[in-house]
Amino acid sequence: MTLALYVPTGSPVHRAPAGAKLLTLVAVSVVVFAVPTLPVVGGVLAAVVLVGLGVARLPPALLGRQVRAVLWWLVALAIVTGVVGGVAGAALVVLRLLALVLAAAVVTATTRVTELVAVVEWLCSPLRVFGVRPARIGLLIAMTLRFIPLVAERAERIREAQAARGGTVRGIRAWTTTAVPLLVQVLQMAHTTAEALDARGADDDAPPARPPSRGRR
């Protein structure tokens, strides 16, 4: 399963720290909104494309896919802004959207998921004040990635069981007759997972309690 959108080419952009890339992305989005003139926004877009294709050596098809994903938006926004603000206004909005989407795509394609998770943990560290433990984010992500196929599998099994009993309900009823047993099952599964983790010492705020001494000599 190709779950990640990362494209390794080993370029300098790939080696740059994830935090720096995210900061650049924020800077790009501030600039294209703060200075809404065609040369600036066009220049930013050109720079993004140059970095993505030239420096990061990403396949042009990858950026093309991103453009195709927002193509409908481009057309709709161009028409609406074209009516209100003329050709220049429409061009500005289209160029801005392209610059933002492509810049984000370059960051995503050049940064490993693990590096971005590390940045997320770092960003969450001030939340310690509210009792959030950043180290738990890794556990949360691992649990979610495990639950996704499990939930899909349980849903399929419930549908099969219902089909075997000859039930073919349609519409809203079809949703509820699947969703209720599915939710009860997966909530129980999550509860069991949590108990298993707790049994292995995941719930302790303090370091885990000392193991019982009777096993030792």
């Binding site: 959108l5 927002v70 933002l100 984000a104 998921v113 971005l116």
Partner: peptide
């Protein structure tokens, strides 16, 4: 869920993900 999308997992309905979707309209 949004963090997982943002770090580059294609979990949104259209199979899209990454930071681009947050930068879009």
């Amino acid at each position: 869920f949004l963090v997982l999308v943002a770090v580059g997992l294609p979990l949104l309905a259209s199979g899209s993900g990454g930071l681009s979707v947050f930068a879009g309209p």
